[in-house]
């Protein structure tokens, strides 16, 4: 191979062709719209609330995606549904409300796509973030998830009544007497986001598209 021009054109054409593949994908699903339920007349998926959207930014900056995925594999391709990570597999349409789609590629931690459904209790999520080992799941998690104490404020009570926001922690969490643990705005946003993570609506269009092929009857 001697010709520099051919080399250049080939090098150029290869990446251009591969980029064209991205454009094809964009053409196919780049403008998926919300689906309007014909009976209930609701639009799905619903957008995140304002505070949950702030929580998405906290999720992003803390790098939760390093260990947690947000995608449920369909029944026939993995045990995600049996693990209780969702009632159905994820569809592309589920993600159009997410300004950043954190589908993730590592499962050092459990999948969080439907964590809001599994764990709607904010108090529990605060405990999990402040002192993972103090929760039921946390006892076992003690080897895995780090604590996020910097998302909380440790305040001296100084004889006052404790804040209505204070997290009720068991003694094992190691908070000294006379102190209370109050979530910061960032922790509140993150928990709002986590509680918002749930795909409740099953799109009829997607369901039929993703249904496993039926085996022809009458053979054998």
């Amino acid at each position: 191979m001697k010709n520099g021009l051919i080399l250049f054109l080939g090098v150029f054409a290869i990446l251009a062709a591969s980029w064209a593949g991205l454009l094809a994908a964009h053409r196919q699903i780049g403008s998926l719209a919300q689906f309007k339920d014909p009976i209930e007349e609701t639009l799905n998926p619903q957008p995140l609330s304002g505070v949950a959207n702030q929580g998405r930014l906290v999720y992003q900056d803390l790098g939760c995606v390093t260990c947690h995925s947000q995608q449920v594999r369909h029944e026939e391709t993995g045990p995600d549904i049996k693990r209780g990570w969702g009632e159905r597999g994820s569809y592309a349409r589920d993600y159009i409300r997410d300004q950043t789609a954190f589908i993730g590629s590592s499962r050092l931690g459990p999948d969080l796509r439907n964590v809001g459904k599994r764990q709607p209790d904010a108090e529990y999520l605060y405990k999990l973030l402040y002192a993972p080992e103090s929760t039921v799941a946390g006892e076992a998690l003690a080897h895995g998830m780090p604590a996020y104490r910097f998302l909380f404020e440790l305040r001296p009570l100084a004889g006052n009544q404790s804040s209505y926001k204070a997290v009720k922690l068991p003694a094992s969490a190691g908070v000294a007497a006379g102190f209370e643990v109050v979530p910061t705005a960032r922790a509140e946003a993150l928990v709002a986001y986590l509680r918002n993570l749930q795909d409740n609506y099953d799109y009829p269009t997607e369901r039929s598209l993703n249904a496993p092929a039926e085996h022809p009857k009458g053979e054998h």
Partner: peptide
């Protein structure tokens, strides 16, 4: 781009 096109 929107949704799952980002991971793509």
């Amino acid at each position: 781009v929107r949704g799952v096109l980002q991971p793509v």
